[in-house]
């Protein structure tokens, strides 16, 4: 009974956080709401018995991936969301469409033959069980994951690193060199300000 109450409470928190994420107009506020969603999902996993997944949800999603999100928001310098006519249309069409879609998914899931209900906390998910599944039953997917991670590493580095000759010592950008050369008589304060703006 306590499980059910906790589960429902955190489900409501998760949905409320998700709605707040959509309503908030500043990206950082949305990112903070996303942390609420991920944290309450972690509690839901825990209540279902998936302890390892719950811990990972906090460490990877609420921790690492949110840091990445915030860095990307800061990198893009995303300002307050603009409301145009298009967003109004999306609001009018989107809510009924989402409602119909959600009901459709629920209906299909309830009608599917192999779907049954499971008691809260009846599943198992301690690290030992995960280890057994990962290194025995799902060995190939596990090894393929490493290739996937490798692609992620290479993609990020190739996309984000500045263009320069291979394996050479990094050179200062030409802009900054030109700035330093042109600075000459200008006060030092001015130079740092412009350098900060250009970088």
């Amino acid at each position: 009974m306590l499980h059910l109450i906790l589960f429902s409470v955190f489900a409501v928190i998760a949905v409320a956080g998700a709605l707040n994420l959509l309503v908030q107009r500043h990206p950082i506020s949305s990112a903070l709401s996303l942390i609420v969603v991920m944290g309450s999902l972690a509690v839901e996993y825990l209540l279902l018995g998936a302890e390892f997944v719950a811990a990972i949800q906090v460490i990877i999603y609420a921790g690492a991936i949110m840091v990445l999100f915030v860095f990307v928001i800061m990198l893009l310098n995303a300002g307050v969301e603009e409301r145009t006519k298009g967003s109004k249309v999306a609001l009018i069409l989107g809510f009924p469409a989402m409602l119909v879609g959600g009901l459709l998914v629920a209906w299909v899931l309830l009608r599917a033959p192999n779907v049954g209900s499971v008691n809260v906390g009846a599943m198992y998910g301690p690290p030992k069980a995960i280890g057994w599944l990962l290194f025995h039953d799902f060995l190939l997917p596990f090894e393929v994951t490493s290739v996937l991670v490798l692609i992620a590493i290479m993609g990020a580095v190739v996309l984000a690193s500045p263009v320069r000759s291979r394996f050479s010592r990094p050179q200062p950008e030409p802009e900054r060199q030109a700035l330093k050369a042109a600075a000459g008589t200008e006060p030092a304060h001015e130079e740092t300000v412009t350098a900060r703006r250009s970088s």
Binding site: F52, I56, I59, I60, G63, A64, I65, V67, L68, F71, V72, M74, L75, L76, N77, P127, K128, I130, G131, W132, L134, F135, F142, T145, S146, V149, A152, I153, A156, V157, A160, S161, R196, R197, S199
Partner: peptide
């Protein structure tokens, strides 16, 4: 202000190796 893209590289490399470390735990307990 606008941040440099280097923060993004650091963050994504951190996430990637974080995921790698997570995979070590179920292996270590078994």
């Amino acid at each position: 202000g606008r941040y440099t893209v280097r923060f993004y590289i650091v963050a994504i490399l951190f996430v990637v190796f974080d995921v790698e470390t997570i995979f070590l735990l179920p292996w270590a307990v078994r």
